[in-house]
Amino acid sequence: MSLLRPFLLQTNCLGRYNTGMSMAENPSQRPLVVLRPQRGKASLNLLEIWQFRDLLTTLAQRDIKLRYRQTALGAIWVVFQPLLAAGIFSLVFGAIGKFPSDGLPYFLFAFAGQLGWGAFANTLTKSGNCLVQNSALVSKVFFPRLILPFSTIFSTLLDFGVGLVVMIFLLAINGINPGLAILATPLWLLALMALGLGLGLFAAALTVSYRDVQYILPVLIPLMMYATPVAYSLSAAPPKLAVILAANPIAPLIEGLRWSLTGRGTLNWLYVAYAVAFTLVILFLGMVYFRNMERRFADVI
């Protein structure tokens, strides 16, 4: 792959170069690339992301390499953070609040919820910050901008993978067999990360002009967590309240992931269908919004 690829792609998305011409040594026989102002709606052109997969993986590797640099405990934080959160939840909601937990040890119950929440929230945070964090790249080098938010999902995937190993270990020592439900885990994860990415795309594009988003997100995300059945179960809420809580599209996905990881709890498929539809719409709109804003990123970042 090469720098040229950006230019060929650029022409692809503008659709203004003569295809089928041979790439001859003589410049006069080469297709002419013409860059014009983009008007109207930008096309999604997801093919670009595939064509730039080298850069995508390089950025992902860089993310993973850079994480926990200059920390004493290093990668142990990947395990520590959800364990710590689950510990506090089981103390507050389990031991003190005596919330129901579908018959599971509260720690296990909260850890499963936290795994799902982490996948969603980390995707949202990282993709939301990616443009500002890479502003030097955005303003100096051409590449499809969608690569940046997409590249952030890999380190979150790695975190989830490590968390999953801990989860399986916890299941084993508690003697809990989730059964076949565990096979659906990747689907819940996919939905949670897609929702996080969709919202993150909005956040990233907005942050370019409004750095306010950087201050709002860290406040909003923990608040959202308490509005989501991460540390408690939807079944613990009074039925009327449960309906309102389930209007939060993250809720059925977290409950679904927990059902997959533990084999306990009941799923309301209506809620799940709503959450999945919501996720697809947000992801699509997020990409459309991002693509339509990106032409100005280098000007204002």
Partner: peptide, 27 residues
């Protein structure tokens, strides 16, 4: 020229690269 920014009007034109393994332009 580097395609980092887009013109508000008018156009920038240049011949495409010879082959995909040969960057046309080093920004």
């Amino acid at each position: 020229f580097a395609n980092v920014m887009k013109p508000d009007s008018g156009e920038i034109a240049f011949p495409a690269s010879i082959d995909p393994l040969h960057p046309r332009l080093s920004p």
